[in-house]
Design a protein around this nucleic acid. Sequence first.
DNA 1: AGCAACCTCCCCAATTAGGGTGATGATAAA
DNA 2: TTTATCATCACCCTAATTGGGGAGGTTGCT
Lengths: 204, 204
Amino acid sequence: MSITIHIYDDNAALRQSLEQLLDLSGEFIITGSFDQFIAPAAMPDIILMDIDMPGISGIDAVKKIRSFNKKVPIIMLTVFDDNTHILEAICAGASGYLLKKSISEKLVPSIKEMIAEGATLSPSVAKMIIQSMQKTPVKEQYHFSSREKEILEWLCRGNSYKMIAAGLNISFETVRTHIKHIYEKLQVRSATEAVSKAINEKLI
Amino acid sequence: MSITIHIYDDNAALRQSLEQLLDLSGEFIITGSFDQFIAPAAMPDIILMDIDMPGISGIDAVKKIRSFNKKVPIIMLTVFDDNTHILEAICAGASGYLLKKSISEKLVPSIKEMIAEGATLSPSVAKMIIQSMQKTPVKEQYHFSSREKEILEWLCRGNSYKMIAAGLNISFETVRTHIKHIYEKLQVRSATEAVSKAINEKLI
DNA sequence: AGCAACCTCCCCAATTAGGGTGATGATAAA
DNA sequence: TTTATCATCACCCTAATTGGGGAGGTTGCT
C-alpha cells in the first residue's frame, strides 16, 4: 500500500531532493512531478505544492484543485515565513504547511501526520493562524459605551432600529441617537459600513 | 535556567501525573498547581490549563488571564475532540492545545515547542482550525449569479446603492433589482441582515 | 458644578424596501 | 425551431427606514 504523490515546484533541484527523500523512505510513489501547475489526470493521495511558482501561483493552483476535489490533502511548501501568503493558502484550501528549511527532517513525518490526522502545521505557522483568529485586543480604540456595544451587536445581527428599540426596551429615537454616536466613533455613515467594520475588526 | 509552570486542573490524579512528568525531565519548576482558577501572584513561564473545570471554566480563566497578560503561553488540556470548545479557547487567547490522551508522549515536546515557536497544536486540532478558516464549500446553496455576488461584495464593503451603480456602471434601479433578488435568496429584508449573513457565512 | 452616559423628542432629506412591468440575449429543453 | 427559463438591465410608484442636525432632560460620578 504505497502512497501516491504529486509534486509541483518550479525549482528543479528542490524537486529532485524531494523525490530522493520520498524514495528513500520507500513508502511513497511519485506519480507526477511538475515545474508548473497542470491539472492531473488522476488524483494522487497527497499533493506537495510550492507556494511561489511563476505563472499560476501555488495558491491559485490550490483553488483550481479545490474547485473539483475537496478532499485530496495539499501540503504547501514555502521559503517564506510570511503571513499573508500562508493565510491565503489556508483559506484557499491547503491542508498543511511546511517551511522549506525544515523539509529534510519533517517532510516524511508531516506526510504521515497528514494522512493520519488530516492536517499538518509547523508550529510557527500554527502561531500565525492562532494570532489571526484571536480577537485583536489592540482595537479597543473606539471606546464604545456598554450601551453602544450592545446596540452595535443588535445591528450586526440584522435588526432594524425598531427591533432594537423593542428588544432593549428603549425608544426608537434613543436607538437612533446611540447609532449616531457609534457612526461617529467608527467613522462610518451607514449601517452596512458599521456592520462590516464591526465584524471584520472583530468588535463584536 | 528552569522553566516555571502553573497547572490548573480539577482532577488531582491527572495533576499529579503532570507534575511527575515535568519533574522527570528536570527542566521545569512547578510554581503552582491548582484545582480551580486562582489569579496567580507572579506569572510563570507557561500555564497548563484544563478546559473543563467546575466553577470557572478553563476558557473563562484564559479570558481572565489575558485581560492583564497578553503574552504568557497557555496550553489547554482537554479530553474532548470537540470543536466548539477548542475554537472558543483559541479565540479567548489560548496559545496551544494538547489532547489528554497524548499527554504522556507529547507534554514535554509541546512545552518546548511552545517556548521555541510560540505555539503548539496537535494535528487534529490543527485540522479543525484549518477547516473553520476555509470558506465553507457546502454553503453554495444560495446559487447567486456572478453579478449578484459582485453586488453583495460591494454592499458588504459598505457601499450605498448609488456607489455600487457608479462603480459597476449600471443604473441605480438595476442595482436595486439585483439586491431584491439577493434578499430573496438570502431570506433577509435589510442590508444589515444581508451583510452580516454574508460575512458570517463566508459568502464573500 | 461639571461631565459623561443614557434617554427623549423634533424636523427634514436621503436612502432603502416592496410591489410591479418590460426588454434583451444566452442557454437549455421540447 | 420554437418554447421556456434565467440573468441582466431598466423603469415606475409608494411606503418605510435610515442619516444628519438640533434641543432638551435625568442620573451618577468626581
